[in-house]
Write a protein that binds this DNA or RNA. Structure first.
Lengths: 168, 168
DNA sequence: CCGAATTTTCGAAATATTTCGAAAATTCGG
DNA sequence: CCGAATTTTCGAAATATTTCGAAAATTCGG
């Protein structure tokens, strides 16, 4: 495989993985492009390489900055904004984890809390089944959320120390 | 809050979480409905409660069975098929993890392997940056995949024993 | 503070995904 | 093996998401 093929291929692969993750294709592709670029690129360079419109490019570049996986950099004597991807994959993973927690876990937890003080008639099988299942889900989701939170803050618990060592 | 509101509310919440997870709304809602139902339901009952069409209901019910989070059950003396959700939340989580691994990690790993035997000219900054980043990503993704695999097989490693205990 | 360069916004078009519902296929009791 | 009950398929319609590209807004060197 040629280098330029490989690069195209990687951008494409990262892009389709993005869609599986609920990230739109352009956003993931821009991220891929910046990840493998040796230095920061301008919006125009991204547009050119990816054949995307100005609006779309701008939107997604800002979203990436918002997630924290891409940084704006300014070069002196140049009015243009340059964009540079965070190259430390562990940090990228943490930031992605953080976003996913926000989008996938938090809203659910918010809802689950509401059922806590629901008066349940234990003699009604419908109500009992509901209360049991939702109670289980709540307990479990809270645990998972706690795990995420710890992974994100990289708090030095004994457990996480071990896990992170395993990942390095 | 009334019970029937709570139920509606939960189905709705689980549904919108589903869309964040890349699962379509109907599929997640059917799952929610079956989760909180005291016994198995027929496709017609699902259609009725969720106001979904026959085709859509059938499609998603089968998808849920495919994932393993819902089981078909047959009642004697009744030709209809009944559907019942797996109520053990830990097991549900494992099955979902498994699907996500398949959709989110495996295709990427497949691609990453291809760059392994790419001849890289270290003097070309573009090529060097590409090789470095992709190499990192590959190493990391493999680690994460290994973690998933272990969680799924619930293999009794010391580490996982501890983690799972934490989740219970 | 002017004006060119650059970034952002926004409605419309394109695309992708989901859902509907009728028709076809299958199943199974009698 | 017939036929009603049930499930599945499938193309079309509805909906949701993404992308485009022109126009508006902003920025900043001179």
């Amino acid at each position: 495989m040629e280098f330029s093929d490989a690069k195209q291929n990687f951008i494409q692969a990262w892009g389709s993985m993005g869609t599986e993750w609920g990230i739109n294709r352009t956003m993931a592709q821009i991220h891929a492009l910046l990840l493998v670029a040796p230095q920061a690129l301008t919006a125009d360079q991204v547009m050119e390489e990816l054949k995307t419109s100005r609006g779309n490019t701008n939107l997604n570049l800002r979203e990436l900055v918002d997630w924290g996986v891409v940084k704006k950099v300014n070069k002196l004597g140049d009015r243009k904004e340059y964009f540079e991807a965070l190259k430390d994959i562990h940090k990228v993973a943490i930031l992605i984890l953080k976003e996913r927690r926000k989008r996938e876990l938090e809203p659910l937890l918010q809802h689950l809390k509401d059922y806590k003080d629901l008066k349940v008639n234990k003699n009604n099988p419908d109500e009992k089944a509901f209360a049991d299942t939702v109670g289980d889900i709540e307990k479990f989701t809270n645990k998972v959320d706690g795990l995420f939170a710890k992974a994100i803050s990289a708090e030095e618990s004994w457990l996480w120390g071990t896990l992170i060592k395993f990942l390095k």
